[in-house]
Amino acid sequence: MAALYFMIPVAVIVVGLAIWLFFWAVDNGQYDDLDSPAHSILFDDDDPKHLAGVDKADDKQPEQDDPRA
């Protein structure tokens, strides 16, 4: 139980950090548009970088099946 003497102040500090971070996020405009990100991920299919990544992942598959020591 003696640990609580330490844990409680730590918890308070963590909360303080969390609030600071949240305030930063709000002021930075992270929460201004909550609708567009939901749509933008749907269009990644045609992104050439995404397709290249998909291809690369497919190529890698057989190698990953090799057992590792």
């Binding site: 909360v15 609030i19 949240f22 305030f23 709000v26 929460y31």
Partner: peptide
């Protein structure tokens, strides 16, 4: 816009602090 941000900050602070106070 600034009122909206303030409202969001208030909610965030209330929520985060409330969890700790509950504890």
């Amino acid at each position: 816009a600034s009122e909206n941000r303030r409202a969001l900050r208030q909610i965030g602070m209330a929520g985060l602090l409330w969890f700790q106070v509950m504890m």
